[in-house]
Amino acid sequence: MDLILPDYGLLFWTALVFICLLFILTKFIWKPILSAVNAREQKIAESLELAEKTKAEMKALQAANENLLKEARAERDAIVKDAKETATKMVEEAKQAAKTEADKLMASARQAIETEKGAAIAELKTQVAAFSLEIAEKVVRGELSSDDKQKALAEKLAGDINLN
């Protein structure tokens, strides 16, 4: 029976110790522990949130980068294409110009050659004429050096004339 009857002395000491313990623990121990744990939990939650945000930001940044790169690539392609076109055009033009020039040169050269040729031919003709005359003179001189020869010539010429 003693076992289930409360003892006032022990009840008093239990009350005293428990109430003191409740106050001391609450004020000096539970509060700092709980606030530290709460602060840490909040810090972790915030860090996680930040990490998530950073991740999303990184993703957006990456997408933006990708876009930028794409644009740049397209631009580059356009520029290159343009440049190629321009270059081709320029080359074409240059070619055309060169060709015209060459043609022109050729034409002028040809003309010059033609002129020179003409001049040369004329010269040659004159020379040939002069030589011919000289030769003819010499030949004639030879032919006409004796009477026999003059006669033979005259006969020959006469024969030629007849044959005509």
Partner: peptide
């Protein structure tokens, strides 16, 4: 395991 203590709690 003492009834006084558990009574108080």
């Amino acid at each position: 395991g003492n009834i006084s203590v558990t009574l108080f709690l």
